[in-house]
Amino acid sequence: MSELAVWATITVLPGRQAEAERFFARSRAILDAEPGTTSFFVVRIDDETYGVFDTFADRAALEAHIAGGSGRDAVYAQVGTLFAAPPAITNATVVERGAAG
């Protein structure tokens, strides 16, 4: 099976960027311990919008992530206090991957 990917955009409440970035750093530590997570990136798109890109070895790894400590429940628990709304999520399949760098 091909590597799976998730692209999510999420809006942070005004003035909460530093707290959001700490949340993303904690998420990275959790994702680093997930054996099927093959990459994790967070990018700042503008002052209040962030993009998160994750890749997973297979469907089981993706499902484990969703159920894990930085997955759906962890993010949704922050809606209204840290995030303005649930993330907009796009699921995809990796077609080509460049060299690590």
Rank of each mutant, 00 (worst) to 15 (best):
Q17V: 12
L4N: 06
Y50T: 05
W7Y: 11
E3T: 12
A57L: 11
A57W: 00
P87R: 05
V42H: 03
G51L: 12
T38W: 02
R97A: 13
V42Y: 04
T49F: 00
D32I: 01
N91F: 15
E48S: 11
R28V: 03
R59N: 07
S70E: 04
E34K: 05
I89Y: 01
A88I: 10
S2R: 13
T90S: 12
A100V: 13
V94Y: 02
A85W: 00
L82G: 09
R22E: 15
F23I: 10
G51C: 13
V79L: 03
Y50P: 03
G98P: 00
R97Q: 13
A100K: 08
E63F: 00
G15P: 03
H65E: 07
R72E: 13
R44C: 03
P35W: 07
T81R: 15
S2T: 15
S27C: 15
T37H: 01
I45W: 00
F24M: 10
F53T: 14
D58S: 10
Q17M: 13
E34N: 06
A88Y: 00
W7T: 15
D47F: 01
T37L: 03
H65G: 03
G80A: 12
A100S: 13
E21S: 07
E63S: 11
D32R: 12
V79I: 12
R26C: 05
R28Q: 09
F40S: 04
L62R: 13
A61N: 07
E48L: 09
M1Q: 10
R26T: 08
A88K: 12
D73K: 14
V43Y: 05
G51D: 10
R97F: 01
A77F: 01
A33M: 08
T81F: 00
R72C: 02
R44V: 04
F56N: 00
A74E: 07
V95I: 10
P14E: 10
F53V: 15
S27I: 04
T49M: 05
T49W: 00
F83C: 06
L4G: 03
W7F: 13
N91Y: 15
Q17S: 15
T37C: 08
G71Y: 06
N91E: 14
R28N: 06
A18N: 11
E48G: 08
A57F: 01
Y76V: 13
I66Q: 12
A77K: 08
P14G: 10
L31S: 08
R16M: 15
P35R: 10
P35Q: 11
E34C: 06
T37F: 01
G98N: 11
P86H: 07
A5F: 03
V94S: 05
F40N: 05
A33R: 14
G101I: 11
D58A: 08
F23C: 08
L82W: 07
T81K: 13
I89E: 09
Q78R: 15
V79M: 04
A67C: 03
M1V: 08
T9Q: 13
E63T: 14
G80V: 11
L82C: 10
D32H: 07
R16H: 13
D58M: 07
V52W: 02
R16P: 02
I66Y: 02
S39H: 09
A74P: 05
G80T: 12
V6S: 12
G15S: 07
E48F: 00
A5K: 06
G68F: 02
G69W: 01
L31Y: 01
A67N: 08
Y50S: 05
L4C: 06
Y76Q: 14
G68Y: 02
G80C: 10
A67K: 13
S39W: 02
N91M: 12
